[in-house]
Design a protein around this nucleic acid. Structure first.
Length: 109
DNA sequence: CCCGTGACGACAT
DNA sequence: TATGTCGCCACGG
């Protein structure tokens, strides 16, 4: 491990996301104190597939509820995984995202 | 060391 | 509401 401190922080929060729920990059960044550095969260997700234990990066969406990173999962895999957990996805976007949103700064409070 | 890029977000127009 | 621009910070080249 290197100075992945920040990245591990992101992974830890993402792993805390309950099944059937989703969160946003901004919410995580805000919770970690990164503020507007939501991009770093997404960047951290870039390594999510190589980190152990595995990180449910498919539960991390942008503030719009769009499956921005589905391309990195390969095809419709990300959408399929979400639907498998009971999350309805339509047009690469989570329906009722606002309701399914799991904000660590509030839910974990 | 400088530049470009990026799984985002907020604001301005 | 939709589109465009800027800011954010880390990493690769």
């Amino acid at each position: 491990m290197k100075s992945d401190n920040f990245f591990e922080r992101v992974y830890e929060v993402v792993r805390l996301v309950p099944k059937g729920r989703v969160t946003s990059y901004g919410a995580i960044a805000n919770f970690l104190g990164a503020g507007g550095s939501a991009r770093m969260v997404g960047y951290a997700m870039y390594d999510a597939g190589k980190v152990h234990p595995p990180v449910p990066a498919h539960r991390v969406l942008n503030r719009n509820g769009d499956l921005t990173g589905k391309h990195y999962f390969g095809g419709n895999l990300m959408q399929q995984m979400l639907e498998s957990e009971g999350v309805k996805v339509e047009n690469d976007r989570v329906t009722d995202f606002k309701t399914l949103l799991w904000d660590p700064a509030k839910e974990l409070l």
